[in-house]
Amino acid sequence: MKVGLVQEEGRTWSSYTTSSLPSDTRDAHICAAQLNVWYGDKLALHDVTLAVDRGTIAAVVGPSGCGKTSFLMCINRLTDMIPRCRVSGALHLDHLNLMSPTIDVLALRRRVGMVFQKPNPFPLSVWDNLALPLKEHGVRKRDELRQRIETVLREVGLWNDVKDRLGHSALALSGGQQQRVCLARALVLSPEVLLLDEPCSSLDPLSSGMIEDLIVSLRGRLTIVIVTHHLAQARRIADSVAVFWAQAGAGWLVESGPTQQIFDSPQHPITAAYIQGHRG
């Protein structure tokens, strides 16, 4: 598999203390600076500054409630959907300013796919699950629909399982298959960024392994941000790791860097303890 397109000396994550972005991250695909998220008056994510390089896999780890999901939802502006949720700071996808109130969020979300923690295919047929987003984004010809749907289902290793029941409800599939339908649904629009929110957490080890292999196979083609509670998984698949932590209810970024560095020589005591805890 290809390795990162713009990988410089293994540096894929960087942390900064100012909102101006240093020159060496100009090429970063996703770039957040001093990002804050509020739910009402409650600060959920405080001052997160980090960058993800193009074509790499970045893992976000941390205890429950430290704002991992909130961070992901900033990147595709799903925060818009949440009542009383407010975001401040700087966030860029390439050169697109994600904080701008005037950007086309539909186009943005087409570029940024997302898979959620719980498998949630729409209660429609497998075909409709995949065709709905395609049609919405202008693919109308049946041949093209069919071809793209088949390609993506093959990619997630589901084609042989479902090719005879594309017209059946997606809810009749097993949990692992459903999650792969969700993954296919996110991939079918050919996004450039894939956000994965604990995609394996409700799956058995076998399904989980299949999804993990799939993610690895996407390296280089897509920029992937994956939230995971399995440190071992993060270590296996990620190019870089960001450790979030919650303090007094607000999440913050403890440390980020290349996977090797985070696991072998963590700089921050919290990181060390967290990794130790998981090892022990």
Binding site: R77, D80, P83, R84, C85, R86, V87, M99, D104, L106
Partner: peptide
């Protein structure tokens, strides 16, 4: 800063 409920901009 953006706040809640930016309507999707499709016509």
């Amino acid at each position: 800063m953006f706040s809640i409920n930016t309507l999707s901009p499709s016509r």
